[in-house]
Design a protein around this nucleic acid. Structure first.
Lengths: 172, 172
DNA sequence: GAGAGATGCTTAACATGTTAAATGAATGCG
DNA sequence: CGCATTCATTTAACATGTTAAGCATCTCTC
């Protein structure tokens, strides 16, 4: 089952290599994507057993650390866009894992907090998560892990304030 | 607009801190997610102007380097799951950016290749992408960028062969 | 060479990412 | 006060992530 090296007399397209670019698989976005997937692959099965998605878990974790937050701030904390968060909160509320009540001062704002049931669920999941994280740290090395996160933070920082406005960088 | 430090007489939930975990925002998955988002934010506007999503662009790039590939191998190369790829190929084919034909030897396999139009589109987008990548490299530093990718690769490697089977790591 | 199982791809169903528009409530200004 | 504007959140619409199921086709074995 070895592929033939080429076959220019194909009829369709000896098209390749006409658009020179970096090796695709070594681009920074791909490296980041693959690395993150490798990490998340470790957590997903455990979360799944508790009926939680990665994003739902992010929200519960964010909520566990505080009394209550506005939706907008929660979106920033959990790194989710408003519409995604809106849907997820609807579902989490239906499952009684969170509670919502509109703020007194400003009727537009909605204060979100984790429920008693939510806390129980977190208590059930957290040990697994911590164990998995510990294993990842052990395999990769605690020092290197800290170094990596440092670099990721710097990368983020060095790109801050670039893609905000509609610069004339595209479509000549 | 400063949040009150606490308000235990709230009625709902002085729930916080009952489930001790790492600081959420400093977890490895979050760091990777934020870093990748910071990078992709730079590319999306340019791609969007050409009516391409990030994933569609990945596929075209992967196809530009070869004559033709089977769908399964393309999925591996572009790091997409089968179902996602299937849908995207359907759309790209409808836009005449790719071509498909079933393999002679094995009727199950479908060989995918980029079309002439696809090549033209790539030629239009590639310069922008390269310019953006160059700017990112300039800002973050070429050396650090290489170092980062090296570490990401190591992370991936160190986690290879962990989350494959359904270990008894979860739900006691 | 016929049926059991494996393989390659697609479809289905549900959850999220992403952008635009809608809704409802606060704010500013005449 | 009346109304346009702004703001917080939700809804809508489309694309993708993710798992499971479906459908051909191929392979292997008897």
């Amino acid at each position: 089952m070895v592929k033939k090296p080429a076959d220019p007399a194909n009829g369709s397209a000896p098209v390749a290599r006409q658009v020179p670019m970096r090796d695709f698989s070594r681009s920074l976005p791909m490296s980041l994507l693959r690395a993150r997937e490798a990490v998340m692959r470790q957590f997903r099965p455990s979360l799944r057993q508790h009926g939680l998605t990665e994003q739902q878990w992010r929200i519960l974790r964010a909520l566990a650390a505080i009394e209550a937050v506005e939706v907008t701030e929660l979106a920033r904390t959990a790194f989710l866009l408003g519409p995604s968060l809106s849907r997820i909160l609807r579902d989490l509320e239906a499952r009684n894992l969170i509670e919502r009540k509109t703020a007194k001062a400003d009727q537009r704002r909605s204060m979100v907090s984790i429920s008693k049931e939510g806390v129980k669920l977190m208590a059930a999941v957290a040990p697994n998560s911590e164990a998995i994280y510990a294993e990842i740290t052990r395999r990769f090395g605690a020092h290197k892990l800290a170094e990596l996160q440092e670099m990721l933070g710097e990368l983020e920082h060095s790109l801050a304030g670039l893609g905000s406005a509609d610069d004339t960088l595209a479509e000549g």
